[in-house]
Simulated scan of single mutants.
Amino acid sequence: MTNSIKLNTGKAFPSISATLLDGTQVDLGKAYGGADWHMLVVYRGTHCPLCTRYLNLLEEQKSALAEIGVSVLAVSADSKAQLTEHMEKLTVSYPIAYGLTEAQMKALGLYISAPRSAQETDHNFAEPGLFIINEQGNVQAVDISNVPFLRPELEVVVRGLSFVRSQDDYPIRGTVEY
């Protein structure tokens, strides 16, 4: 049996940083651009066509997320060169960071995979994760998968967040400890 960490909803999102293409270090859990909530999307890397599709679909939801005060950031374990290559396939305007380490993946409770071959990629990588961090810096919602084809539909996520944000007393779900 392997040990794994599960981020508890309602608790502080860990302070983890990664690098943007321009060299800027970003805190993966911090909202930006006037938003008070934040969505972090962890993707597998440039080798994954489903990730490319998902990131491009996320761009279509960016303005709806901004309207409800949610900023967007994506990150992978890819290198700067790999992200640069991937940007040629992406039509996104939100920031994407690179260099997520295995220790950071573990701190986020993500599944980690080894490449099937050198043609796929040259490093272990995180399987998909989606984190919603609220204005207190706490985990509001989380979705973690071990495969790229099990991810939440982004339109459903936006509708759900719109509903939650419109309520004064909607609780953070999944906080019962066991």
Rank of each mutant, 00 (worst) to 15 (best):
Val72Gln: 01
Val72Ile: 05
Ala66Asp: 06
Leu20Gly: 11
Arg44Ala: 14
Asp27Ile: 10
Val70His: 09
Leu40Asp: 01
Asp22Ser: 04
Lys30Phe: 06
Gln25Thr: 15
Tyr32Met: 09
Leu50His: 15
Gln61Thr: 02
Gly23Thr: 14
Leu58Cys: 05
Gln25Ile: 15
Ala64Ile: 02
Leu65Val: 00
Gly29Trp: 03
Ala35Gly: 07
Lys30Met: 11
His38Gln: 09
Ala35Leu: 06
Ala66Gln: 07
Asp36Val: 10
Cys51Val: 02
Met87Ser: 14
Arg44Phe: 06
Glu88His: 14
Tyr54Gln: 05
Leu58Phe: 05
Ser76Asp: 00
Leu65Gly: 00
Gln61Leu: 05
Arg53Pro: 08
Leu65Tyr: 00
Glu88Gly: 13
Val75Glu: 09
Pro49Trp: 08
Trp37Phe: 03
Ala31Gln: 07
Tyr54Thr: 07
Val41Arg: 12
Val72Tyr: 01
Gly29Glu: 05
His86Trp: 15
Lys30Asn: 07
Gly69Phe: 03
Arg53Lys: 14
Ser63Val: 06
Gln82Pro: 09
Cys51Gln: 07
Gly45His: 04
Leu58Ala: 02
Ser63His: 06
Val75Asn: 01
Arg44Lys: 06
Ala74Gln: 06
Glu88Tyr: 09
Asn56Ile: 13
Leu40Glu: 07
Ala81Ser: 13
Glu59Phe: 00
Gly23Ala: 13
Gly45Leu: 01
Gly29Leu: 01
Arg44Pro: 02
Thr84Leu: 12
Val42Ser: 05
Tyr54Arg: 11
Thr84Tyr: 07
Asp36Leu: 09
Glu88Ser: 15
Leu20Arg: 11
Ile68Asn: 03
Leu20His: 09
Glu67Thr: 11
Cys48Asp: 02
Leu58Tyr: 07
Glu67Arg: 13
Glu85Ile: 12
Asp27Arg: 13
Lys80Phe: 12
Arg44Met: 02
Lys62Glu: 14
Pro49Lys: 02
Leu65Glu: 00
Val72Glu: 00
Arg53Ile: 10
Val70Ala: 07
Ala66Thr: 07
Leu73Trp: 05
Thr24Ile: 03
Leu73Ile: 08
Gly45Met: 06
Val75Asp: 04
Thr24Cys: 11
Val75Arg: 01
Ala35Asn: 05
Leu21Asn: 12
Leu58Ile: 03
Thr19Glu: 14
Gly34Gln: 04
